[in-house]
């Protein structure tokens, strides 16, 4: 078992024996790991392995029932203040984008800076426009989500998450709902973000992206971490039988 006192020094996320059940179904069976500041971790595994549930526990969209999660020195618990603080420090990007369809692109991005961080509208908008420029869709700022493509929507979703100036970004299968020709525009934005030093946890099936960007790859199956390693070791010399099977199946496609 990891010694929490030692790992907290340079770790921004510490998970210790995290368990989660959906009714009787044991989804997470004791996840213990830690992520360093600036680390890019890719989490992969077959569907139903609990990988999405795991990263959703990190900003408490799912509530873990046993064990501890500490994000940037704040423990995730039933403490209302801690939950608020962590949600401001952790940005999240969803598979289905989840943009707010009744708000323009710009309003989507400025929403939480204005209402949660209490920024002035003008300030929030100029910051938002800068972010939209960074993800390359400043010219669509006044359109509604339904009027732009899926790839553009996902880039807006990234900008929206970045607007809170989070220390950590979670990506829950960000390219799975996209048409193939749009996947790269989103991955490019994520590469740029990775280069800027952001701490990133990415659940994805894009193995090319994983090999190129990740510092560490975590393979999950049946609610537990089966293997974690640097990409070259993970892909070229996997230790576990299940990992080997998964890699061979994934790379065939």
């Amino acid at each position: 078992m990891a010694d929490l006192e030692n790992t907290t020094d340079d770790s921004i996320i510490v998970c210790d024996d995290v368990h989660k059940w959906f009714d009787d179904f044991h989804v997470l069976k004791g996840i213990t790991t830690a992520f360093k500041k600036g680390e890019k971790a890719v989490i992969c595994g077959p569907s139903g392995s609990g990988k999405s549930t795991f990263i959703r526990t990190i900003n408490r969209l799912e509530i873990h029932q046993r064990g501890r999660i500490i994000v940037d020195g704040i423990e995730l618990s039933d403490d209302l203040r801690n939950i608020d603080r962590i949600r401001q420090e952790v940005g999240m990007v969803f598979q289905q984008f989840n943009l707010f369809p009744h708000l323009t692109v710009l309003q989507n991005v400025t929403l939480s800076p204005i209402w949660v961080k209490k920024l002035a509208k003008g300030e929030a908008e100029s910051e938002a426009l800068a972010l939209l420029e960074r993800v390359g869709i400043e010219e669509h700022a006044h359109k509604f989500p339904a009027q732009i493509s899926g790839g553009q929507q996902q880039r807006v979703a990234i900008a929206r998450a970045l607007a809170m100036q989070p220390k950590i970004m979670l990506f829950d299968e960000p390219t799975s709902a996209l048409d193939p020709e749009m996947i790269n525009e989103v991955l490019d934005v994520m590469r740029e973000l990775a280069a800027s030093g952001m701490t990133m946890l990415v659940v994805t099936h894009e193995m090319g992206f994983a090999r190129e960007v990740a510092d560490r790859i975590i393979f999950m199956d049946e609610g537990a971490i089966v293997e974690e390693a640097a990409p070259d070791i993970f892909f070229d010399n996997p230790q576990n039988e299940r990992t080997r099977l998964f890699i061979s199946q994934t790379l065939q496609h």
């Binding site: 078992m1 010694d3 929490l4 006192e5 210790d16 024996d17 029932q65 046993r66 064990g67 501890r68 423990e75 618990s77 039933d78 403490d79 209302l80 203040r81 801690n82 939950i83």
Partner: peptide, 23 residues
Amino acid sequence: MENNSPNSVSEKIPFWRDVRVLR
């Protein structure tokens, strides 16, 4: 809640911030 880590004690949450108490 069972605490599995031996060398750390969860800080006690004041009741006015505890989600379960508030509910």
